[in-house]
Computed example of a mutant assay.
Amino acid sequence: MDALGQLIGPYLGQITFGGLAGFFAGYALKKIGKLAALVLGLFFIGLQLLAYYGYVQIDWTRIQASVDPLLGEEQLRSLWQKFLEVLTYNAPFAGGFVAGLVLGLKKG
């Protein structure tokens, strides 16, 4: 048991720190995402009110045509991979961080 402790001991701290850092990042990210959803939802409601009362005219078909290419499965996967790459850049605790990030996103 002592040999196993010596083998994994140096990595245990990195995994623990990475997991905690990932959890806090995921938790904060989810909270910020909720706030962003609230702001965007209120913005949409405001735009719809302005359109309803004739102050603005919105071309939703053109907006959808502009946004659809950004929401493809491959684009979203690539964005997620780039996001993880940025968050774990030069970090020896990347494995623990990603696991903690997922838990933080679920709990946030």
Rank of each mutant, 00 (worst) to 15 (best):
L103T: 10
A36H: 13
I45K: 00
F17T: 10
M1W: 02
Q81V: 06
I15S: 05
L87I: 01
I15K: 03
T16G: 08
K82N: 05
E74I: 11
T61R: 02
L40S: 12
G46R: 02
L84M: 00
G19H: 04
G22A: 04
V67T: 10
V56L: 08
Y89R: 03
A91Q: 05
L105T: 08
K30N: 14
I8T: 12
T16F: 14
F24Q: 03
I8C: 07
I63N: 02
L50W: 07
A65K: 12
K34S: 14
Q64A: 13
L42M: 10
A65D: 15
L50Y: 05
L70G: 09
L4E: 05
F43N: 00
V102K: 06
Q75K: 13
G41R: 11
G72V: 04
K34Y: 15
A25Q: 08
G54P: 06
A65S: 14
T61D: 09
Q75H: 11
Y11F: 15
A36I: 15
Y89K: 04
L35Q: 14
L20Y: 12
G18P: 09
Y27I: 04
G100P: 11
G100D: 10
Q64R: 09
G19E: 02
Y11L: 13
T16K: 11
K31Y: 14
L35I: 15
G100N: 09
G96A: 07
D2P: 02
Q57L: 04
G95W: 08
N90T: 02
Q48I: 09
G72H: 05
L87A: 01
L103W: 08
Q14A: 10
Q75C: 02
Q48W: 11
L35R: 13
I58R: 01
Q14T: 10
Y27A: 08
L76C: 02
L29G: 13
L38S: 14
G72Y: 10
F24N: 01
P10Q: 07
G54R: 00
F44I: 11
G26W: 12
P92Q: 04
L40G: 12
F43Y: 07
A65N: 13
L101E: 03
